[in-house]
Design a protein around this nucleic acid. Sequence first.
DNA 1: GACGAATTAGGACAATTGTCCTATGGCCAA
DNA 2: TTGGCCATAGGACAATTGTCCTAATTCGTC
Lengths: 199, 199
Amino acid sequence: MSAGETRQQIVNVANRLFYERGFEATSFADIAKDVGLSRGNFYYHFRTKDEILDAVIAQRVTDTGAMLESWETDGPSPAELIRRFIHILIANQSKIMAHGCPVGTLCNELAKLDHAAQTDAAGLFVLFRRWLARQFVALGRAADADALALHILMRSQGVATLATAFRDEDFIQREVADMEAWLFTQSPAASSLDHNQPA
Amino acid sequence: MSAGETRQQIVNVANRLFYERGFEATSFADIAKDVGLSRGNFYYHFRTKDEILDAVIAQRVTDTGAMLESWETDGPSPAELIRRFIHILIANQSKIMAHGCPVGTLCNELAKLDHAAQTDAAGLFVLFRRWLARQFVALGRAADADALALHILMRSQGVATLATAFRDEDFIQREVADMEAWLFTQSPAASSLDHNQPA
DNA sequence: GACGAATTAGGACAATTGTCCTATGGCCAA
DNA sequence: TTGGCCATAGGACAATTGTCCTAATTCGTC
C-alpha cells in the first residue's frame, strides 16, 4: 500500500477514535490495531501523536468545508440551509448521545490539556460560524448576522451536551423544533410573531 | 492529621484537578503532589481512581445542593432565582473560558470513556434540572416546567462550550442578557412580548 | 531476474500509569 | 512508660505510554 493511502487510513481511524474515546484516551496501539499495522511503524507516517491530531483536525476542516459547500449547490433558501444545520442534531442523534458533538468535545478536551492545537480545533467552529453568518446576511440580518450565527451554534452545543448526559430523544426533537421556530421569527418579515416557547 | 481530614484534602484537590485537566489526564501522582502526600499512601484512603471520582462527584452533589438551597433562604422570587442560575456564567466566566462547565465537561469525558460513573455525574445536571423546574412551577408554568428547566440548562451548556472555544466575554454577556430577556417572556403575564433577538 | 527505494514489522527504551505491600513513625489509651 | 492502632512513606510490580531504531519485506524499474 502506498504511504499516502496508509496515512489516510491512519487519519480516518484516529478521527473516529478521537471522537469516540477522546484524544488522550486513544493510544498509538489502539489506532494501530484498528488500522492493522504494527505500532512501531507509525513513526514512519507520524513522528508524534500531536502530528496525528493536526492531521485529523485538517481532515475535519476539509470534510466540514466540503459538506457546507455541497449543501449550497442546489440553491436552497438561507432559512432552509440553516434548518439543515440544525437538523444535524437529529441526523447524528445516536452518535451525539453516545459521544457528544465531535467539535465541542474536542475543543473542551484540548482546553483542559492546554494543548497547542486548541486554536486549530476551534477553527472548526469558525467554519460553521462564518457559514451560518453568511446565511443570516442573506436572510437580511447583516447587522447582527455573526451574533445570530453564534446563537445557533451555542444552542446546538447545549443540546448536544445535554443529549449526551440524559440520552433523551424527545428533548432533542423538542429543542430542534424550538430552534426552527426561533429561526422563523428571525426573518425580518416574521419578526413580530412569537414562536419562542421551548415546548 | 486524621484520616477524615486527609481524605477531604484529597477530594478537594482531585475535584479541582479533574475540572482543570480532566479525569483521565489527572494522575495519582498529580493529586499526591498537590496534597503533599506520597503516592503509595493513597491506597490507604482510596483503593482505586474510580473511588476518588465517586467521592468527588458526591462532594459536588453536596456542594451544589447546598448552594441551590442557600439561594432560596432570603426568599427571592422564582424569576430572580433563575436569574441567579443564569449569572453563574458571568460569576465563573474566567474559569469557564479556561476549562468549560465542570458538569458538562465531566459528563462528556465519562461518556467517551464509557465510565460506570456516567449516571452519577449526570445526577449533577438532575440537581439543577429539578431545582430550575421548581422555580418554573412557582412561576406559574407547571405544565412545561421541566422542559423550560432543560431549555435553560441547555443554553448555559452551549454558552459554556463556545466560551471555552472562543474566549469571548462579549458573547457571554450577550447570551446571558438574551437568556434574561427570554426568561422575562416566560412569565405568563408577559408572554405576549417579544424579547428573543439574541443581540 | 536484479537492484534500490519505499514501506513495514518487531522490538528497545525510559517514563509513567494504577495498584498493592511492608516497614516505619506518631499518637492515644492503659 | 508501654502497647497497639492509626496514618504515612517508600518502593515494588506489571502494564502501558509515546518515541525511536534497525532489520526485513515489498514494490516498481531496469
